[in-house]
């Protein structure tokens, strides 16, 4: 089985993040990292490879030049090779147009299974697996906390708002995962060294047969028209419990009409 894992470079969610003057995510000045749940998708792929169920794992990303750092990070966890779609005209794409670029890139690759995160830590739209399933005409199974592969048959268990459910489908399929699925491995020193030599193919929009004005800011289906930092929350009253802290808390809640 051949697996493609989608990864995305995002501004570190642990640090302060900004928008640029054109209201797109400021990726140039940010400290960029791999989107957290992508590591769970890579781990899921490598677990299948370790079990002898996958013979090729390819990393696919769409992003600016510096997204190659994220590719190397992903490759250091074990995948064989990577494809980097890079074209200045892609900047400013919405999720809908990004899915068109990813679908076109997947069209150039052989895959039985596409693994991705349920959502990224920057845009957090949470729709990519379904968008790709719809565009490619393949099964889209989402929010997996467990994935079982038996030949061409895929079984996903996932948490829902009011319980859990089991999904079944056949390959080819797109499966999105949550962090509850596994614990991503740490890259070994050997893995980090090997990642530097693994093949990375770069594709442009023309390689994918996409017109520049159908993607990026020009082709986006939505736009941000205003952005304001939320006024920072300021710390309110703080007391130290010296025996009556609970009573003080109850008094505060009563004063705010919660009791």
């Amino acid at each position: 089985m051949k697996i493609v894992v989608l990864v995305k470079q995002v501004p570190d969610s642990g640090l302060e993040r900004h928008l640029s003057s054109d209201f797109t995510v400021d990726r140039a000045s940010a400290s960029n990292v791999i989107s957290e749940l992508d590591e769970n998708a890579i781990e899921a792929a490598m677990a299948l490879a370790d079990a002898g169920q996958a013979d090729e794992v390819t990393v696919l990303t769409v992003g600016p030049d510096h997204a190659v750092e994220t590719i190397r990070k992903a490759l250091s966890m074990g995948p064989d090779k990577a494809v980097h779609v890079q074209d200045d005209a892609i900047a400013g794409s919405c999720a809908v147009t990004t899915s068109a670029v990813l679908a076109a890139a997947l069209g150039t690759l052989e895959y039985d299974l596409v693994l991705c995160a349920t959502e990224s830590t920057d845009g957090a739209v949470g729709g990519m697996a379904q968008m790709l399933g719809a565009r490619l005409g393949v099964a889209a199974m989402t929010g997996a906390r467990k994935l079982t592969v038996d030949g061409q048959k895929l079984t996903v268990e996932r948490q829902t708002e009011d319980g859990h459910e089991t999904l079944t489908a056949s390959t080819p399929a797109v499966v999105s995962v949550w962090d509850s699925m596994n614990t991503p491995r740490y890259p070994s020193l050997k893995g980090i060294m090997a990642a530097k030599r693994k093949p990375v193919t770069t594709l442009s929009l023309s390689d994918l047969g996409l017109a520049p004005d159908t993607v990026g800011a020009a082709g986006a289906t939505s736009k941000v028209v205003q952005a304001e930092p939320r006024p920072p929350r300021s710390a309110g009253q703080r007391i130290t419990d010296e025996g009556e802290g609970g009573v003080a808390l109850a008094e505060y809640l009563a004063s705010q009409k919660f009791v």
Binding site: R233, A235, G236, Q237, R238, I239, T240, D241, E244, G245, G246, V247, A248, L249, A250, E251, Y252, L253, A254, V259
Partner: peptide
């Protein structure tokens, strides 16, 4: 968490929450 809390109690939650609970019941 205290930097964004409107009301913070520095203390042991196993003492503070039950005591607050008792006080709320008393008030009701």
């Amino acid at each position: 968490i205290f930097e964004i809390a409107d009301f913070g109690v520095v203390g042991d939650l196993f003492k503070v929450l039950p005591q607050a609970g008792e006080e709320i019941k008393k008030r009701r």
